[in-house]
C-alpha cells in the first residue's frame, strides 16, 4: 500500500527517469506564460505562511512571493496554481518540474543549495528553532529538557538541529517524528511528547491551533539559524532572477515607502529610486524578459514586504510576530535588498 507521499515520490522519480532531454534546459518563463499561471509549491497548511483561508484562497507570506512572481510575469497576482506539499515531498516536486517555485518555509542550507539541483533565491523570513512546552511542566529554559520526548516534523532541518543541540548540551531526547505539522500538534496535545519543536514562527502558528493556546508556552531560547526562502530549479538563470527580484522589489518598495495604497500616486514621484522601481525611468524588467511595470504590478496587487508581513504574520494577524530581525536594514533588521537600477 502506498500513501500519497510515496506516490508523489515515485511519480517524480519516474519523471526524472523517463523525461527526455528536451525539457532539461527549460525556459520556465515561456512555459509559465503559455500556461497562464505560476505553479507554486506551498505547505500543507501553516497559518501566516501558506494556508487556505475561510473561502479557500491561499494566504500567507510564502503565498505572497508566488503572487508577486505571477504579478511580475503575467500581470495578475491571482494567476497561481498552488500545490500543497509536505516537507518530504517538496524538493522532489520542484526537481521533477511539477512546480516552478517552492515557497514553503524552507531553510536555506549548503546541502540543499548545492546537491539537490536547486537554487535559493533569497530570504523571506529570518527564523530560528524554538521549543513549545506545556505550562504545567514548570520549565523555564531549554537546558532543562534532558530526557524529553520531542515531536518533530519529518524531513526538516529541525530534525538535525535539535539532535545537534541536545548532543552539544549532553542531554538525551526521544524524537517522535511525524509526516505533517498537524500530526505533531496532535501528538503534543495528547501528551505523546513533552515538547513541540519547529521554527519559532511556525510554533506561533501552531500554538494558535491548539484547543487551549494559553496552556502552552514557547521557551525563550532559539537554537539555530533558519533563513527561509523561495527555491527554484538550477539551470534556468532567468527564472532565478525573476523570483529573486520579485522579492527584492517588495523589499525595495517598503524601503522607499511605496505601498499598495499609494502606488498610483507614487507614479509621479520625483524620487529617482521610486521612479526606477515603478518603471517610470528605464525598463529594469527588460533583462528578465518582463514589462517595465513588473514591479508596479507586484506592489499594486500584492503590496510591499512590510504590508505582506503585517497582514500575514505581524501584529495585524493572529500570529502577532514582532518584526524584530525581519525589519529592514535601516530599521534594525536583516532585510537588505540590492537596489533596482
Amino acid at each position: 500500500m502506498l500513501n500519497k507521499k510515496h506516490v508523489v515520490l515515485l511519480a517524480s522519480a519516474g519523471a526524472i527517469t523517463l523525461s527526455g532531454m528536451a525539457n532539461v534546459q527549460a525556459d520556465t518563463l515561456e512555459e509559465t506564460r503559455s500556461r497562464g499561471a505560476v505553479q507554486c509549491g506551498v505547505s500543507d497548511g501553516l497559518p501566516g505562511f501558506s494556508a487556505p483561508d475561510d473561502s479557500g484562497e491561499w494566504q500567507g507570506l510564502d503565498v505572497d512571493v508566488c503572487r508577486a512572481v505571477a504579478a511580475a510575469v503575467l500581470g495578475d497576482a491571482n494567476a497561481v496554481n498552488y500545490v500543497s506539499l509536505n516537507a518530504v515531498e517538496r524538493f522532489t516536486a520542484l526537481q521533477s518540474g511539477e512546480i516552478d517555485v517552492l515557497s514553503r518555509n524552507t531553510t536555506w542550507t549548503t546541502t540543499r543549495d548545492t546537491t539537490l539541483g536547486l537554487n535559493f533565491t533569497g530570504v523571506t523570513f529570518y527564523d530560528g528553532i524554538g521549543f513549545m512546552i506545556n505550562r504545567d511542566l514548570g520549565i523555564s529554559g531549554a537546558d532543562e529538557l534532558d530526557g524529553a520526548a520531542i515531536c518533530i516534523q519529518s524531513g526538516t532541518t529541525t530534525e538535525l538541529n535539535v539532535a545537534d543541540y541536545f548532543r552539544a548540551n549532553d542531554m538525551a531526547f526521544d524524537p517522535i517524528v511525524f509526516d505533517t505539522s498537524e500530526q505533531t500538534v496532535g501528538g503534543f496535545q495528547a501528551g505523546r511528547c513533552d515538547v513541540l519543536t519547529s521554527d519559532t514562527s511556525q510554533l506561533a502558528a501552531l500554538r494558535i491551533q491548539l484547543d487551549d493556546p494559553d496552556s502552552a508556552m514557547i521557551l525563550p531560547e532559539i537554537i539555530s539559524k533558519e533563513p527561509l526562502g523561495p527555491v527554484v530549479r538550477q539551470g534556468d538563470d532567468n527564472w532565478l532572477n525573476i523570483v529573486k527580484w520579485s522579492l527584492f522589489a517588495m523589499l525595495n518598495a517598503e524601503e522607499y515607502g511605496i505601498t499598495s495604497e499609494n502606488v498610483d500616486d507614487m507614479m509621479d514621484s520625483e524620487n529617482p529610486d521610486v521612479a526606477r522601481i515603478l518603471g517610470q525611468d528605464g525598463n529594469y524588467g527588460e533583462g528578465m524578459g518582463l514589462e517595465a511595470d513588473w514591479a508596479y504590478n507586484i506592489v499594486s496587487q500584492v503590496g510591499n514586504y512590510g504590508e505582506s508581513f503585517e497582514r500575514n504574520v505581524g501584529m495585524d494577524s493572529p500570529l502577532q510576530i514582532e518584526r524584530g530581525v525581519n525589519a529592514l536594514w535601516n530599521q534594525g533588521g536583516f532585510h537588505y535588498a540590492p537596489p533596482i537600477r
Binding site: M1, N3, K5, H6, L9, S12, A13, I16, T17, A87, V88, F91, T92, Q95, T111, R112, T115, L116, S154, G155, T156, E159, L160, I176, V177, F178, D179, Q183, G187
Partner: peptide, 27 residues
Amino acid sequence: SLATAIGYPDLVSVFAGTTLNQTGQAI
C-alpha cells in the same frame, strides 16, 4: 510500511522518509 502514517521508525519512515529528504537522493 504503513508505519509511516503514525511515525513508527520503520524502513519507509526512517530511510525512505527522513534520510531521503535530508540527502535528496530519491532514486
